[in-house]
Design a binder for these strands. Sequence first.
DNA 1: CCAAACCGGTTTTTT
DNA 2: ACCGGTTTGG
Length: 788
Amino acid sequence: MAESYPDSLSADAPPPRPGGIAARAAAGLRATGPDYLLGLNPEQREAVETLDGPLLVLAGAGTGKTRVLTTRIAHILALGKARPFEILAVTFTNKAAREMRERVGKLLGQAAEGMQWLGTFHSIGTRILRRHAELVGLSSSFTILDTDDQIRLLKQVLAAENIDDKRWPARQLAFAIDGWKNRALQPKDVPAGEAQAFAAGRGAELYAIYQARLKQLNATDFGDLLLEPIRLFREHPDVLEQYHRRFRYMLVDEYQDTNVAQYLWLRLLAQGSKNLACVGDDDQSIYGWRGAEVENILRFDKDFPGAKVVRLERNYRSTGHILNAASGLIAKNAGRLGKTLRPQSELGEKVTVAGSWDSGEEARAIGDEIEALQSKGCKLDDMAILVRASFQMREFEERFITLGLPYRVIGGPRFYERAEVRDAMAYLRVIASPADALAFERIVNTPKRGLGDATVKLIHDRARADGITLVEASRRLCDGGELKPKARSALKDLVLSFDRWSGQIDRIPHTQLAETVLEESGYTDMWAKDRTAEAQGRLENLKELVRSMEPFENLRGFLEHVSLVMDADRGPGEDAVTIMTLHAAKGLEYDTVFLPGWEEGLFPHQRSLDESGRAGLEEERRLAYVGLTRAKRRAKVWFASNRRIHGMWQSSIPSRFLDELPEADVDVIEAPATFGGGGGMGGSYGASRFDRAEPFNSTYDTPGWRRAQERGTQPSPGPGARRSGPMTIEGELVASSSAKSAGFSRGSRVFHQKFGNGTVVEIDGNKLTVAFDKAGHKKVLDGFVKAA
DNA sequence: CCAAACCGGTTTTTT
DNA sequence: ACCGGTTTGG
């Protein structure tokens, strides 16, 4: 097997061990406990034991999907049906891949380490592509462009073709190309009608030019990591044949999220052994907007004749009412295979539905409820707030900061997408591969060196004329006379620096090299001199970047990892409430789940309805289903009658999804008493449940309104309310309010988002007086600062 | 070359 | 209302 692969990458494939793998796997099992099949229910067991031929496991929420997947792998290995490196196991995210590896490892011990084909679609695609790169016009050291690089490259293509990128933005072209790649369309396959849509019919042509540029740069984008292997398999049947022989068993997680390209990729590979097991849940397909085709799972048995379908319907996660509510809701969808989740525990608490006057009150009420639960002994770690759109998070953050309630935001700006991290990465990329033109361009004038567009253009021209890299071109340019003395010395400096750094690449540890580069390039200095509030956080991120390089053997390994992973690990840290989007919540579970913002227009989202009509509505409904089924014991749904969207206050009516929840499983909370000071919209929706016909805010006779009048404030806390609270998300790896004021004492050095660094001069309860280095003396709440 | 004015877009997110 | 990117003027 391994020896049939020519290039050096096969070196990491352990040689087939002479016999004994199965035996050792089995031994590992014996060591970790009783037979792994015990404890599975009959359906799970069937899903694990049906090894041969195509299999679709329809796994409802909380039915033990991952367990089935991992146990199945263990079973295959234990029976000696295949060796670890003969199993292909594909997931969508790195996180899922990591988890699967971990869990298989727990079952099998050592044997899991041989599973080199366990990974994401993209990482496995990369692996395949590196082995056969020459066959598709790349060299095996190709680089992988992320979205940012992709846009930059497209901008160049548009410029070269004299297309006004005002009228035809690169982003839009990128979007179109992504769409085509999702459907496995090469430039020649793009339907004429769609090609027409961009730049007066030049869409497909531009796509072709872009592909050619990628090849020139020895680069791929994410789509290519799937597409190119497909092309490879189609054009080189002998290569496909090798993989047919290799992959004796194939497993796919979250099959409902696959797009056309992924489906074709799998189908090509599955022509070999036919042992393809897909696990998924059509009711949890929520990624249609980025190319996922629910159809793939709906027609699995037609695509793979003779496929067996196993349904997992016993839900071990949620209590009865929650599950029934979710089931009742999802039953309104037409396009589904149909499953009925059966609770395995008592009915538990009903799902609650409560209304509030506006989003601020919603945040206050939920905050109060969280504190109430906390005082009853519930851990914050077991609670989550799941929102439809990320702008909703702000309100909760603000509220929690004032309450001093620790929280965690999942899915803010990603670590590796931050400008400073990307800049630093660009330096490293140029050092590792001087041919990386996009990286060089990114940092040639960052920090400012007086090398503007004019100079960059000269470099470009020279590179193109001489057929050399931008770095080489820069070097030659310095020797020539085209440059003004200022630009020339700056560029000379940069080139010499890169020479120096490249020379050290194998001589000093890569982390140290990174530090040197950031220091010597003046990059760290640039931020150190920056007086804006984010600068401090950015410096932190740079340090974090260097730390995150530690586990890697060398710079190359790290860069490869980042290009695929783009996802920083976030430690669990202190006890904290989690705030995230519904999309981010898939696959997770919490004791208590708060679901705010169930209003027409927001959830279901208007845009989804506008763009995809009924299919869009069904996807939104699946999202609601995902939200509810995250809850183990308590699901608390909220809606507000006023919400500020794009800066404008708008009144809203309760989501149609509320009416679709079975009455028997829902408690409508009417009494405003439960949340101190927060008024419910109680009375008005009591009559006809959620009062869809008549927006209740049309009558100014609500508790909220009356209270507002009594207070003599503006009726809507909206327009006039101050919204100046510091946003913690910027500049931190994980935004979180510091739980307790813990640890601050006079003389402590602290950092404040707005005022920067300072020294604590006085403490009064949770109020600190701080002498800020730049902003002078201020009184601040301890929640607003963190230890510097 | 840089800073200030200006414009457009604003659901969800992975790789 | 706000952010980020682009254009424009110094």
